[in-house]
C-alpha cells in the first residue's frame, strides 16, 4: 500500500471525524455555548430532525436536500414552542434546566417509540464513492465536510454581521442592559433557542442516512456533543467548536487507526479531560488570547 493513499485516507478520516463531532455539537453550540442551557434533550432534537427528514423523504417523496431544509424548520418551530412553554423559565438556572431537559428527552424518546415504533425505514446515502490506492471515500461524507465548513461561515456571518446577531450577542452577555437599550430580549431568546433546535434538527437530518433511525438514536450524539462544546469553551462558541472538533479528531483518528476503536474512544475522552484541565475556559479562550496578543503586537 502506498504511503500517499494512506495519508489521503487519514486526511479523509480526520475530516469525517471532525465533521461528525461538529455536526453532533451543532445545535448545542448555540443552546449550551451561547444560552447556557444544559440541554440533555439535544439528542432527541437531532432524532426529531432525522425523523422529519425521513418522513418528508419517504412518505412525501421530497428530494433529500429539501427534506433536510424541512426538518430544520420543523424542529426550529418545535424549539420555539418548547422555549415559550418551558425553557424560558429556566434561564440562569442551568442545573434546573438540566433536569427539565432530561424529562423532555424521556418524553420525546419513549413518545416517538410509542407513536412510530422501533425503527423507521432508512434514507439511502446519497452519492457514490471514490477509490484510490486501496482506500475508498464516500461522496456524502465529503459533502458533509463541505456543509460543516459552510455552516461555520454562515453562523459566523449571522452573529457578526446581522442585526439579530448583534442583539443576540448583547442579550447573552447582559440581558438587563440589552433590554434597557431597547433590545426585545424575550424575542431574541426565543429566536436563539429556536435556531439552536433547528440546527440540531438539521444535523440530525444530515446524519440520518449514516445512521439507524430509531427513537433512542439521539443518545449516541449526546456525549460527543457535550465534550465538543465544553472543550471549545464559551468565549467564542463558533471558533471554539471548530477548534475542539479539529483537535479531538486529530487525536482520535491516528490512535483509532493504529490501535483500534476502543483506544481511539479512550484517547478522545482523556484528551477532553486534559484539555479542560489545561484550558479551563476552553479552546476558544486560548485562541482569543493568542489573537489578542497578535493584535497587540501589530498595534505596537
Amino acid at each position: 500500500m502506498e504511503i500517499d493513499a494512506l495519508a489521503l485516507s487519514l486526511t479523509y478520516q480526520f475530516g469525517t471525524n471532525a465533521a461528525f463531532l461538529f455536526l453532533s455539537a451543532l445545535g448545542l453550540i448555540v443552546i449550551l455555548g451561547m444560552m447556557n442551557i444544559i440541554n440533555l434533550a439535544h439528542g432527541e432534537l437531532m432524532m426529531m430532525g432525522a425523523y422529519a427528514a425521513t418522513i418528508a423523504n419517504n412518505q412525501f417523496g421530497l428530494p433529500f436536500p429539501l427534506a433536510v431544509i424541512v426538518s430544520f424548520f420543523a424542529v426550529a418551530i418545535f424549539g420555539a414552542i418548547l422555549e415559550l412553554l418551558i425553557v424560558r423559565r429556566f434561564y440562569g438556572r442551568e442545573l434546573s434546566a438540566l433536569v427539565v431537559t432530561w424529562g423532555i428527552s424521556l418524553i420525546l424518546g419513549q413518545g416517538t417509540f410509542l407513536v412510530f415504533g422501533p425503527f423507521m425505514p432508512a434514507i439511502k446515502i446519497p452519492g457514490g464513492s471514490y477509490s484510490y490506492g486501496g482506500f475508498s471515500f464516500s461522496e456524502y461524507w465529503l459533502v458533509l465536510i463541505g456543509i460543516s465548513i459552510s455552516l461555520v461561515i454562515g453562523l459566523y456571518w449571522l452573529y457578526r454581521y446581522t442585526s439579530y446577531g448583534l442583539q443576540a450577542r448583547a442579550t447573552m452577555q447582559n440581558a438587563e442592559i440589552a433590554k434597557a437599550l431597547g433590545v426585545p430580549t424575550n424575542r431574541v431568546y426565543t429566536l436563539t433557542f429556536s435556531l439552536g433546535a433547528g440546527l440540531a434538527g438539521l444535523s440530525g437530518a444530515l446524519l440520518a442516512p449514516t445512521s439507524t433511525i430509531a427513537p433512542f438514536m439521539g443518545q449516541q450524539f449526546v456525549a460527543p456533543a457535550f465534550i465538543t462544546v465544553v472543550v471549545g469553551g464559551a468565549t467564542n462558541v463558533i471558533s471554539g467548536a471548530v477548534g475542539s472538533s479539529v483537535l479531538l479528531s486529530a487525536i482520535k483518528t491516528p490512535i483509532g487507526m493504529a490501535y483500534g476503536a476502543f483506544l481511539g474512544t479512550v484517547a478522545l475522552l482523556v484528551a477532553a479531560l486534559v484539555i479542560i484541565r489545561i484550558m479551563p475556559d476552553g479552546i476558544s479562550a486560548t485562541l482569543q488570547k493568542i489573537m489578542d496578543r497578535r493584535r497587540a503586537r501589530h498595534t505596537l
Binding site: F90, S96, V99, V100, G103, I104, L106, Q110, G111
Partner: peptide
C-alpha cells in the same frame, strides 16, 4: 406500562416548572 418513561418525564417537567 410502556408509558412509564413518559409519565416520569412529565412529572420531572411539571415539578421543575411549578416547584423550582
Amino acid at each position: 406500562n410502556q408509558y412509564a418513561m413518559v409519565i416520569i418525564g412529565t412529572a420531572l417537567v411539571i415539578t421543575m416548572l411549578f416547584f423550582p
